[in-house]
């Protein structure tokens, strides 16, 4: 049942995302002018300022005296999120999804948000080694866990075997689903180093590729598993 998905394309969300990038500790510094950087520079408006005030809003919620309860928000609260082996001190509202925290606060835009409803798995990241939809969980629920994004998959400048196999098999067309696909396929190999094609199909059954590159994704993942075996 997907008719309700239509309402996800709330016209304000894109603009909000760009505006929110003014958070301190946002995108890492880059050389030259990027599309994203340009939009950031051009995007401040009165509405944007109001939005930012909301983000930085003071935490006025009454604190509980119960030791089993910690009351947070609605304004931003300081937290430390462990991503790709590094601790990031960021300010997030309780409503911030993990995908928003990764993309907007930390600047790791490799994680793609497509449906924002958990129905396409484009935003797949690992919570410890478990693949999850980062759009469908609160960032606060990732505290104390190790988050791995597509940026954290390669080691010492070497592509992860699944990434290398995607290149070798040309397992992408438009590429927008690719970070999520790679994270799902790599997670499979973490738990099952000798998968069958059926295992791969099952592991990515939530990942949608509108270009229909599935056959090459299966081939790349099986090939990567072979690579892993040799390693």
């Amino acid at each position: 049942m997907s008719a309700h998905e239509d309402s996800h394309s709330n016209p304000g969300s894109q603009q909000k995302e760009e505006l929110l990038k003014h958070e301190p500790g946002g995108d890492p510094p880059r050389n030259g002018i990027t599309r994203r950087g340009f939009l950031k520079g051009a995007g401040i408006t009165a509405a944007g300022t109001a939005l930012l005030e909301g983000v930085h809003g003071f935490n006025t919620a009454a604190q509980s005296t119960d030791p089993g309860v910690k009351v947070l928000g609605p304004g931003a609260v300081p937290v430390t999120l462990s991503v790709n082996g590094k601790d990031h001190a960021i300010q997030i509202e309780p409503r911030t999804t993990l995908a928003e925290a990764l993309r907007i606060q930390i600047g790791l835009t490799g994680t793609k948000v497509i449906c924002d409803r958990g129905s396409c798995s484009g935003c797949t990241v690992w919570l410890d080694k478990m693949p999850v939809n980062s759009c469908t969980m609160l960032a606060i629920d990732a505290l104390g866990r190790h988050v791995t994004t597509i940026e954290g998959l390669s080691e010492a400048g070497q592509l992860h075997p699944v990434q290398a196999a995607f290149v070798k098999h040309d397992a992408l067309q438009c590429g927008f689903c690719t970070p999520g696909m790679v994270m799902s396929c790599a997670a499979l190999l973490e738990s099952n180093s000798h998968p069958t094609e059926q295992d791969v199909r099952h592991a990515i059954s939530g990942n949608l590729c509108r270009c229909g590159t599935y056959a090459r994704i299966f081939a790349a993942t099986l090939d990567a598993a072979g690579t892993s075996r040799k390693a």
């Binding site: 909301g54 809003g57 919620a61 509980s64 119960d66 030791p67 089993g68 309860v69 910690k70 009351v71 947070l72 928000g73 609605p74 304004g75 509202e93 309780p94 409503r95 609160l138 606060i140």
Partner: peptide
């Protein structure tokens, strides 16, 4: 998504003490 207060609970009693005035379990 609207802004909200999050009561992060570690005990059942703690959670039950927060379940009032329209609070929703997550």
């Amino acid at each position: 998504m609207n802004a909200f207060v999050l009561a992060d609970c570690t005990t059942v009693d703690g959670a039950l003490s927060q379940l009032k005035d329209g609070a929703v379990v997550k």
